[in-house]
Design a protein around this nucleic acid. Structure first.
Length: 462
RNA sequence: GGCGCGGUGGCAGAGUGGUCAUGCAGCGGACUGCAACUCCGCGUACGCCGGUUCGAUUCCGACCCGCGCCUCCA
């Protein structure tokens, strides 16, 4: 029994898919005008874990994550760069795919782009106009009439009066109400546009998600996810449009990830305090970044800092250390253990990954102890469990030696290091400990740490 | 101002009405030529004040503090 916190009802609910055994999920993806930052990574990883876990429990998951490849920010950036907007978006989409692959994020089932759904968008706007939920304004824009949807605000818990009282809503004369939002924006002279019954223009931001999600997943689907700052206005507006257009409930479970913070402030584009994924990956192994993200609950805020990343690295190293030098038994031969059940218990409770990781540590402890006591077969079984549970979180899938010895800015080659280890072994044999220690210290200075064991000496980069 | 979330040991981070989170760091011991790795052990954590209760970090109320959204943002 999986329980998920639903933003709409503000409580954890037992998850029951519309169609037994199948899950239809939509997550708001990127607006591709810049590189992805850590905040994007959080959403990517969080819903990757949701997908992996649901699949591991036997669900067939259809995971749709859109790409917004047309909007004002894209057009502005393309103009600044002096390039066609499609060239910019293609480049950023490639970069995004690269980033997510490095973070171990599985590709979604479908990745629809706004520009490929213009027909569906126009059809939905037409339906909304016909039903009097939208209107064509004097300036040629088409707006959604917020007053026409009595449930407006039910997702973000806002009421219209409060919204209108706030001075921050965009006062646009053509709108009937300041809270109304654009479905279709009329194109100015020379702007990128598509033909429509209301003249040339381009879609507003929210309508694309309504059109793509309902087209790909049906009028009603199971899960809709996204970042914390999408709750309002984006998801609220999406919900309003969709329910008005289809006449059905839009989404059963709404999931929102927590924000990434830097120095107690939200990491965001507007504050300019963001770190891109590729920037961070220059300093930290991708799996450490993923581990950092997964080791706290997806809904909580997390602070990005060098120290926190470093600690995640040390914690992950403990896990890989346990796996080092043993060949895990094949997973099928190891039946479900208490650890598996614990893991599932944690994950069933709104994807409690922090708890799930504690099970991985318990397994590491078991393996170390079993090896110490010479129970190698038991250790191999424990390792198999650890790797299979790790795969649900997208962790521990690398060869441990490869993980520790990954050539990240290493000055010394693996051959050089092996040669030094050999020299040290000979010195030790001759009981020249001063000489042996000198070699070890030299390696340490180059960022190489040695681990002696009965079987010999292994090394890792610090 | 409106709405929402949170304050857990040196740090990170789960969780629970009454024996255990977990990890990092630290300390003591074992292993080791010495280290590293690993193992064994250690540390009177639950913002503040009331209330409910046999018993509250966990439930209720007030208060203090922090954060998020209300504008493009994942």
């Amino acid at each position: 029994m999986i329980r998920i916190y639903n933003t709409l009802t503000q409580q954890k609910e037992t998850f029951k898919p519309i169609e037994p055994g199948k899950v239809r999920m939509y997550v708001c993806g990127m607006t591709v005008y810049d590189y992805c930052h850590l905040g994007h990574a959080r959403v990517l990883v969080a819903f990757d874990v949701v997908t992996r876990y649901l699949r591991s429990r036997g669900y067939e998951v259809t995971y749709v994550r859109n790409i917004t490849d047309i909007d004002d920010k894209i057009l502005r950036r393309a103009e600044e760069n002096g390039e066609p907007f499609t060239q910019l978006t293609e480049r950023m989409i490639d970069a995004m795919h690269e980033d997510e692959a490095r973070l171990g994020v599985l590709p979604p089932t479908a990745e629809p782009r706004a520009t490929e759904y213009i027909d569906e968008i126009i059809a939905m706007i037409r339906t909304l106009i016909e039903a009097d939920h939208a209107y064509v304004a004097d300036n040629g824009d088409v707006y959604f009439s917020v007053a026409s949807f009595k449930d407006y605000g039910k997702l973000s818990k806002k009421n219209l009066e409060d919204l209108l009282a706030g001075a921050r809503v965009d006062v646009e004369e053509a709108k009937r109400s300041p809270a109304d939002f654009a479905l279709w924006k009329a194109a100015g002279e020379g702007e990128v546009s598509w033909p429509s019954p209301w003249g040339d223009g381009r879609p507003g931001w929210h309508i694309e998600c309504s059109a793509m999600s309902t087209r790909c997943l049906g009028d009603t689907f199971d899960i809709h996810g996204g970042g914390p700052d999408l709750l309002f206005p984006h998801h609220e507006n999406e919900l309003a449009q969709s329910e008005c257009a289809t006449g059905h409930k839009f989404v059963n479970t709404w999931m929102h990830a927590g924000a990434i913070r830097v120095d107690k402030e939200k990491m965001s584009k507007s504050l300019g305090n963001f770190f891109t994924i590729r920037e961070i990956l220059e300093t930290y192994p991708a799996e450490v970044v993923r581990f950092f993200l997964v080791s706290s609950h997806y809904r909580s805020q997390v602070d990005y800092s060098e120290e926190n990343l470093a600690e995640a690295g040390r914690s992950l190293a403990r896990l890989y250390h346990a796996l080092r030098g043993i060949v895990p038994a094949s997973s099928e031969t190891v039946p479900e253990t208490g650890h598996d059940r614990h893991f599932i218990e944690f994950m069933n409770d709104d994807f409690n990954c922090a708890g799930a990781i504690s099970v991985l540590h318990a397994l590491a402890h078991d393996i170390n102890q079993q090896r110490r006591e010479g129970q190698n077969e038991e250790a191999r079984k424990s390792a198999a469990v650890m790797v299979r549970l790790g795969s649900v979180l997208g962790l521990l899938q690398q060869d441990p030696d490869a993980y520790f010895q990954a050539d990240s800015a290493g000055v010394l080659s693996a051959e050089d290091i092996e040669a030094k280890i050999q020299a040290r072994a000979e010195a030790r044999k001759a009981r020249d400990f001063a000489g042996a220690d000198r070699i070890r210290d030299e390696l340490a200075e180059q960022g190489v740490i040695l681990d002696d064991s009965r079987e010999g000496t292994s090394w890792r980069r610090s």
